[in-house]
Structure formats: C-alpha cells, structure tokens
C-alpha cells in the first residue's frame, strides 16, 4: 500500500464545491489573467500570472502582430481567434476599445503574432488551473 503523500497514494476526497464557486473561479480566471488565482486565495501567483500574460500581450501588440478574428473561407482562423480570445478582457480592449490592427508589413509581425497567441493560450491554461484548484484536484 503506497504511503500517504506519495504520487500513487489515493488522494483524500475533496470537499464538495458549489457550482457557483467553480463558475466564478473559471470566469474570473478567463476574464482577467490571474484573477482566478486571486479569488482562490493565491494572490502572489495570480499577480505573477497577470504580469506574464500582460507582458506577452504588450510585446505582441508593440510588434504589431496579428490579433486574430474569424476570416470567411479560412476555418483555421476560428481556432486562432479562440486562442487569442483566451486573454480575456485584453482581447476586447485591443480589438474594440483601441481598434488595434496588426501590421502585416511590419518587421515584427510574425513575432508579435506569436506573442499575442501565446498570451491567449497561457491564460487558457490558467483557466484550467483555476478549475483544477477550485475542485480540489490541485493545490
């Protein structure tokens, strides 16, 4: 029988969590990078994640990378848009408040696109992390 705390030991059952609590954790994690972790009482980690995602998005926009939106006839742009929207409010801020347009002729376009996509995808991972933490699957 494996010892308690070893990787193969059965994990103690997590206390039940209300669906509302799960929803708040997940939605806040998506909407503002790191906010889900702050809600789950991990403020330093939340702040660090916020900084990392914001830096990625700032660098990407400074390099005038492409902030994806669906393009008719190009179904893969739907996936890319979903990835970009992973950054939460930052996507809508860039797209609709700042009317951000990438510059395909810019020297940093490809790099900027990579940074923007990565910012979105990192935040989607944070959403999954918050979901695991709120359900007690992870510390």
């Amino acid at each position: 029988m494996a010892e308690i705390g070893s990787p193969s030991a059965p994990r103690p059952a997590a206390p039940p969590v209300s669906p509302a609590s799960v929803a708040v954790a997940v939605l806040s994690a998506w909407l503002v990078p790191g906010l889900g972790h702050v809600y789950l009482k991990r403020p330093l980690r939340g702040l660090a994640f916020f900084a990392l995602v914001v830096v990625a998005v700032l660098v990407g926009s400074r390099l005038e990378g492409n902030l994806y939106q669906p393009v008719q006839g190009q179904p893969l742009t739907l996936l890319a848009t979903a990835a970009s929207m992973g950054m939460g409010f930052l996507y809508f801020l860039l797209r609709y408040a700042l009317h951000y347009q990438g510059n395909i002729a810019g020297a940093g376009y490809e790099y900027g696109t990579a940074f923007l996509l990565t910012g979105g995808l990192m935040n989607l991972l944070l959403v999954l992390d918050a979901w695991d933490i709120v359900r007690g699957k992870k510390e």
Binding site: R45, A48, F49, L52, V55, A56, T118, M122, L125, L126, D129
Partner: peptide, 10 residues
C-alpha cells in the same frame, strides 16, 4: 523567459 517563468509557476 516568459514561457519558462509561466510553466515554472504553473
């Protein structure tokens, strides 16, 4: 650097 820090913290 960004990606490494991210996954380290995660």
């Amino acid at each position: 650097l960004i990606v490494s820090l991210f996954f380290t913290l995660l």
